[in-house]
Design a protein around this nucleic acid. Sequence first.
DNA 1: CCGTTGCACAACTTATAGGTTGTTTACTCT
DNA 2: AGAGTAAACAACCTATAAGTTGTGCAACGG
Lengths: 118, 118
Amino acid sequence: MTLVEEDVSLMFAALADPTRRSILGKLAEGDATVGELAEPFAMTQQAISKHLKVLERAGLISRSRTAQSRPCRLEAERLDAAVEWIARHRRTWSERYDRLDAHLENIRRPESEKEPSK
Amino acid sequence: MTLVEEDVSLMFAALADPTRRSILGKLAEGDATVGELAEPFAMTQQAISKHLKVLERAGLISRSRTAQSRPCRLEAERLDAAVEWIARHRRTWSERYDRLDAHLENIRRPESEKEPSK
DNA sequence: CCGTTGCACAACTTATAGGTTGTTTACTCT
DNA sequence: AGAGTAAACAACCTATAAGTTGTGCAACGG
């Protein structure tokens, strides 16, 4: 699950575009088809399709092949990776943020698994 | 301190480049001059200078005018903004991450200011 | 079986990103 | 004043990003 540098680049690059961030926001409310995602934008369906491909390469969404439509699903876990990358580098920058890092450790595993010691 | 959409774009775009991320990593160890930052890379000083300009526009570094050199300083706080953006959107995606959001609220203010209530 | 809908693929245009070389500015040192 | 060093500025090249139009194709719905 730990990312190589290129993954990080793809992720941040994907997040750098407002249209794509908007798409992610919409997907947060639930899975959606390409048409549904394209509708609010003053942009062709093809353009949105390209954006979705970028998001898919970045691992931020996945697409199933249901009949004639291709619903997109948000892969929210991938966003953890972004936060984690920042946190990991941030650790050296200010020890105050060790706590953020520790916190991320915790939320990445189910409640029950939390280590009481250490 | 809350970011407008364009700031977010600039930030993520700045983080999308491996060279720039590497520069940030180096700056984490302390302030450095352009020359020092350029040294490890197989790249001209001018190219690094451009990268620094991108990082500066994104608010991730600042530069003082000390004599003949221009030391760069990491503006780590700005990275909070990135994490915060993700967390804010993430909130709707899974309520499990409310805790991350709440945590960020806390670390963004000094220890002493923490609100005990609410 | 034929029209429509939902989406991807291909080719093209324009702008921007990332790099180069060449030059200029500004300070320091002698 | 003049040489050397630190870094920015300018013009240019090339690749890619973001959009377009046009087309193809698969799956339904009469």
